[in-house]
Amino acid sequence: MKVALTVNGTAFERDVEPRMLLAYFLREELGLTGTHVGCDTSSCGCCVVLFDGERAVKSCTMFAVMADGHEITTVEGLAQGGKLHPLQQAFWDCHGLQCGFCTPGMMLTSVAFLKKNPHPSEGEIREALSGNLCRCTGYQNIVKAVQQAAGELAAEPVAEPVAVS
């Protein structure tokens, strides 16, 4: 079945089985391995991508065919022109990662969250990230990173994440 979609601003078309899950489509058909597969059962959140720029979805629990005609943003699409997205910079600055496995999902979940809630409290950040698991950091620095990014994004709106280049 033909799937035509936009990923990080670039149009792709592939012929896949309807049962192919979006996470595997991104990784294996498009080579975008920044989207990780962890629990593979929609519990851990490390496969989160952005759907049509607003909705955070666990891509292990969505079929690629469901994304036909839609726009997906993965972690590879966050940086713009060689400059890290404020969330990426904040994760770097605040040591919001250790092994990095959960990080793409944490960041994409946060992108969607900060669009809806640009000035979140610490509690709201923890709640928003409660569907994303991290086994290294104890979450402290992830929360700090999202707080830092929220401040920067609110102060200086950046362009929508689009093309990798």
Binding site: S42, G45, V48, R55, A56, V57, K58, T61, M62, T109, A112, F113, E127, A128, L129, S130, G131, N132
Partner: peptide, 9 residues
């Protein structure tokens, strides 16, 4: 119900 990301779908 579910978690904040799953609730978006």
């Amino acid at each position: 119900v579910a978690d904040p990301v799953v609730r978006q779908s």
